[in-house]
Structure formats: structure tokens, C-alpha cells
Design a protein around this nucleic acid. Sequence first.
DNA 1: CTGTAGTGACTGACCAGTCAGTAATATATG
DNA 2: CATATATTACTGACTGGTCAGTCACTACAG
Lengths: 219, 219
Amino acid sequence: MRHPASPPPATSLSPTPDLRRRRKDARPAELAAAALRLFVDKGYTATRLDDVAAAAGVSKGTLYLYYPGKEALFRAVIEEGMVAALSLAEHEVAAFRGSTADLLHALLIGWWERIGGTPLAGVTKLIISESRNFPEVAQYYREQVLDRGRALVRATIARGIAEGEFRPLDVDAAVDIVIAPLLLLAVSRFSLPLATGSIAPEAYLETHFELLVNGLKRS
Amino acid sequence: MRHPASPPPATSLSPTPDLRRRRKDARPAELAAAALRLFVDKGYTATRLDDVAAAAGVSKGTLYLYYPGKEALFRAVIEEGMVAALSLAEHEVAAFRGSTADLLHALLIGWWERIGGTPLAGVTKLIISESRNFPEVAQYYREQVLDRGRALVRATIARGIAEGEFRPLDVDAAVDIVIAPLLLLAVSRFSLPLATGSIAPEAYLETHFELLVNGLKRS
DNA sequence: CTGTAGTGACTGACCAGTCAGTAATATATG
DNA sequence: CATATATTACTGACTGGTCAGTCACTACAG
């Protein structure tokens, strides 16, 4: 066959008005988005580049015009989006005026709105699954996402202790206790049976917050 | 080559005295243990059965004498060990006399000793990574491990509330908040960069416990 | 010499990566 | 403006390597 179907007809519904062909600038992001979905769903090794290309509406050859190989596509998927969300949160924390409990609450909600509730949450599962196979990517993620996120929570807890709102405790361990339910929530969205089977994410986060401030504050 | 090295000589150090050949009864467990290690480390799809067999000290043909295929090996890896640990915990909880806080503490420590600190913890990462590709296995794990573990924690929290030791709250959400740091700790052992980079698991669990009881108890 | 545990070369399917070719757009020419 | 030519985005058949699963065989045990 020459054409899959027909050259000009009904361009279906797509984000941009779309000319169906020749869209050099939009391709990389479309391919990365398709790859994220498939990598998270099936795993890196089990995902075929033919499927990624098809999901982005192009052929495999086109994929290789924009990415030199499968691993480069993986890197692009990880190194995208998350960092921007982090920078925003860092500014918000620095500018925040109010109780530390309110700041902690804002952090949890902000995480859900900008990461946990978006396709970006899938990156968490991807890193868990593949970090051993891609040590350099894992290190990048650790430095640029995890460490910065942890520093944010750490600063928040330290602020609460300094102002006498929270009682003194092992801050480093506490940071991970704060973060753990978030990561679990992110992962469970892409791994059916893990936790919060039926509970609404918002209620789950509220309970987490409530337990935290009660556990953190001076008695 | 006929033999990897030599037939009778120094059988290295292995659990059983070992006769090197003809050990029909020990093979399945050895193969499953080797498979767990490799599946957790590299992922299911990226693990070659040749490597699993070699790690268990046999050839690939032998693997097929004991398991009908790769997926059956995966099932065996998941459906083994975890359930026994759960039954034990269920009996301990039923027989426990003492404060609910102490019971919660015993649950956390018991989990670490029987699951979190053992190779069994890798099953958690495996389920996270592969549940989408094996829905039936995921459902088995959910019913036989997750739901029963969650019921255990749920009963503990309910006990605390009934006896006036804990304040009333959303029990279902609280259960997942209790479990989340455990799962994260298990996963981080096999996914380098996730959390508790340097913190000792015991200290981490103690902080978790301390935060929990402070957050749970009546103020 | 019979049964059973174990072997490893083989095969067929699958897939990452390639490349010669096709078709859409841009530019040059009469 | 029509037509030729150059450029660029895109395609999909093909290849080479990999690996799950098979099976004819070996060797040990009783």
C-alpha cells in the first residue's frame, strides 16, 4: 500500500488544528508523551518503539529523526516537566507567610495538583522500576527532583521546629515519612492494587496532613 | 565443555551439603530464589531465563523441568513466602495483650524482621513494576497479601479507638498512611535513589512509629 | 539395563535500529 | 501564475541480534 488510508480526509480531532504531516516542532513532545504513557503502563523493556510511534501518529522511522534511540527517549521522558514544577514550589515556599502547618498543607495540595494528579506521576513508577537499569538517569532524578523535594519538606519541618510550632525530632526520617504516602499515591495510580483502592486522593491527603500535624506539634 | 568446572571438587559453600546433581526436591525453591533476585534487579522482561538457570546452578532445560514457562516462574515467586508471614502476624495480633501503641510497634518491627529486611521485600517492587502486565497475579497479591495486611492494621487502629487510646478518624485512609512508609522502605532497598538514602531502617521505623502514635492518640 | 535428572544446540518469533525511497512543501525559473 | 527543481519530513521493508521455549541426547542411580 502507498498510504495507510487517504491523504487529506477528515483530520479527526487533535489538539492543534493540525496539518497531519510536517510538524517538526511538535513531534518531540508528542513522542515523549506517548512514550511516558507506554513505559509506565507496560515497562521500559516491554514497550515497542513501533507502538510508541503509532501512539504519536507517526512511523518508527520518524521517531528516529527526533531521538537517537530508545534510551534517549527514556531520558527525555524523565528529564522533562518535573523540574519546572519543583522550581515553582521552591519559590512558593520561600514566599510563604503563615503557619507552618498551613505551609505543609499547601505543599501537599500543590504536589497533587502539579504532579501527583497529572501524567507526571507516572515518572515515579518508572524510576522505581528502572533505576537499576539506568544508573545515570536515576542519579539525575535523585539530584534534580528527589533531593530538591526533600529539601523543601526538610526546610518546612525545620521552620516549624524553629518557631516552636513543632516539637523537635529526627528531621531526616520525618521528611521521608511525609513523602512516602505521596509516592505511594502516585505509584498506586499506575499499579492497580497497591493502596487507596477506593479512597479519594484528596481525602487520603487530608488524613495524612491531619495525622502529621498532630504527630508533629508540641503536646 | 561438559561440566562448568569439575564434577566432585570443593562444592563451594552452599546451604545444604549438596550433591551437585540430582536434587529434585531443592530445585524449585532455588530457581524461585534466583528468579526473585533477578526479576527485582533487572525487571521481568529484561531478565533472561538462561541467567536465572545459571544463578541457580543449572541449565535452562532444567528450569523447564520444574516450571512450564517464564510466567509460571513469576507466579511462583510472588505466591511464595509472603502468605506464611501474614498468617503468623495474624495470630500474633489476635493473641496480643497490651496497649495498642505497643501492638502497632510490634507490627512495624515484625514486618521489618519477616518481610522488609528480607529478600521478600523485593516482591513489593516486582508487583509495583509488573502488576499491569499480570492482572491475575496482581489480584492474587492484593487479596492474599495486601488486603490481609491492611485488615491487620485496620483492626489495630480500630482497637485503639474502641479502647479510647486513639482519637476517632478516617480509619481506611489512616491504614494506608501507616503502610506507605513500609512499602517505600521495601522499594528503596531495590531502587537505589528513592528515600532513606542513608538513614538506618530501624531509626526510620521508630520515627514513623513515634509520629504515628502522637498523631493518633487523643489530645 | 531401566528410569530419571539434567544438558545445550537449535528454532522461530520478536524487535531495535537502518536506509533507500516517497511525498509534501519551499524555491527557482520561464 | 504555471511548471520545474531542490529540500525536507516522513515512511516501512529489511537485517542482525536476542531470547523463550523445545527436544534429542548424556550420564548417573538403583
